[in-house]
Amino acid sequence: MKIVCLVKEVPDSEAKITVENGKIKETGVKFIVNPYDEYGIEEALKIKEAGGEHQVFILTFGTERAKKVMESAMALGADEGFLVADGSAPDCDSHTTAKVLAAALNKIGFDMIFCGKQAIDDDSSQVGVRVAEMLSLGHASVVNKFELTDGKVKVERQIQGGQEVIEMPVPCVITCQKGLNDPRYPSLKNIMAVKKKPRTVFTLDDIGLSADDVGVNGSFVEVTKFEPPLEKAPGRVIEGEPEDTAKELIRSLREEAKVI
């Protein structure tokens, strides 16, 4: 089975993000494998280790820089890595990103697809499901339990008040939630093995797309501006006798904060 894990390059959750002229400043920011994608990789590696003829592939879409993140993902123990490298990646919306990934998946082939339930940077939570729809595959999102037996997938996902159990045939797309498994750390042997494994960089042309299909041209959604969160205003201490301060507090809550 060819198990493909979709991976996104995201800023480290501990990175200090600054915004300049409506754009996120990327200098000095460290980029990592999207943590939710690691649950998908772990699940794929577990299938492989349980026996049988399986290969685990990493597929990512990003700029040339994302090659490092693809390699970090491979260091967890994957067999092959693929990067669709294009400068337009940061300008692609979820639809276009899914379009690129679906085209790359058709090119490399797949029997099973895993990805994180969302990326920790834009939190759109759409790409996995969109990929499945574009490839006409079954999908289950925010999955916290996974089983594969005789070509059939049985997954569980937490819903209001309980667990939902879904069964479907492979190939399908699973988006992974925390709790699905305990992702491993890369071993030093696997780190050393990365550069000995096949790593392919596709251009848009290689997967049958053109510049018109991607970036601002190919997207429905355009991000016009980023703004840093507003600095929290300093608190105000109301001083005086209890009778007066209580009155002033009620007045401020009603007239200034407008919360009562």
């Binding site: 990592i32 490092k68 390699e71 970090s72 890369p186 030093l188 780190i191 990365v194 550069k195």
Partner: peptide, 10 residues
């Protein structure tokens, strides 16, 4: 090199 950086991160 890349291996040193990956190892440090890991």
């Amino acid at each position: 090199n890349d291996e040193h950086n990956m190892l440090r991160d890991a």
